[in-house]
């Protein structure tokens, strides 16, 4: 018998999948929204670190839409202005999210030796990925890193019992980190 999940931390890729509107993944997120809505004290937690990463994702994506010959100052101005506009559009909806969501910006977290030990021990996988030119391949390290550890530390600090992610790189940590229980969707 499993205890009911009360506080469910959302990794950044979950929020990115939602704003991207990927049908399959949005359905998986909707399952959790429905689960949380069944009991008033349950919450899906969005942290400040998640919002910061989302903003970075938007800026990266905008920069990639520009022609490489674009003047760098003009490109910077465009990315800053457009990202601010898009981010604010997202925030307009976020501040109106029902109380199944909690947006937590101020967190006292402790990053301890535990985080370094975990990162040091679980090296993850090396993956072969198409390079951005699309013509050749590069090897990329695909294991957990410092930012993953910060997310887990925030989730622990907020007494989250569950950590939702789409990133299979978290799989090796499932047996080690508890709480929160990591669920790879």
């Amino acid at each position: 018998m499993y205890a009911a999940r009360q506080r469910i931390y959302l990794d950044t890729n979950v929020l990115v999948a939602k704003v991207k509107g990927e049908e399959d993944r949005v359905k998986k997120i909707a399952y959790w929204e429905n689960y949380v809505a069944k009991e008033p004290k349950r919450r899906l937690i969005i942290s400040i670190f998640t919002l910061m990463e989302l903003l970075h994702v938007i800026r990266n994506a905008l920069a990639k839409t520009l022609d490489p010959s674009t003047d760098l100052d003009q490109a910077r101005d465009y990315v800053i202005e457009r990202s601010s506009s898009l981010f604010n559009e997202i925030l307009e909806d976020m501040i109106r999210l029902p109380e199944i969501y909690a947006i937590v910006l101020d967190i006292d977290i402790t990053i301890s030796k535990r985080e370094l030990e975990l990162q040091n021990k679980y090296v993850g996988r090396i993956r072969r990925r198409k390079c951005e030119c699309g013509k050749s391949f590069v090897l990329r390290y695909g294991g957990v890193g410092h930012a993953d550890m910060v997310h887990l530390a925030i989730a622990r600090q907020l007494a989250c019992d569950t950590f939702l992610t789409f990133d299979k790189g978290f799989t090796p940590l499932k047996k080690i980190v508890h709480p929160p229980e990591i669920i790879v969707l």
Binding site: K18, V26, A61, E89, D93, L97, P98, D148, G169
Partner: peptide, 29 residues
């Protein structure tokens, strides 16, 4: 607003159309 979660879904559909959410977050990290 009960409609806010639905409005949020797909908000960046065009910008992120060719991007995998897991990969792009990995890149940022």
């Amino acid at each position: 607003d009960p409609e806010a979660p639905a409005r949020l879904a797909g908000k960046l559909k065009e910008l992120l159309s060719d991007i995998d959410p897991v990969e792009v977050v990995r890149d940022v990290r």
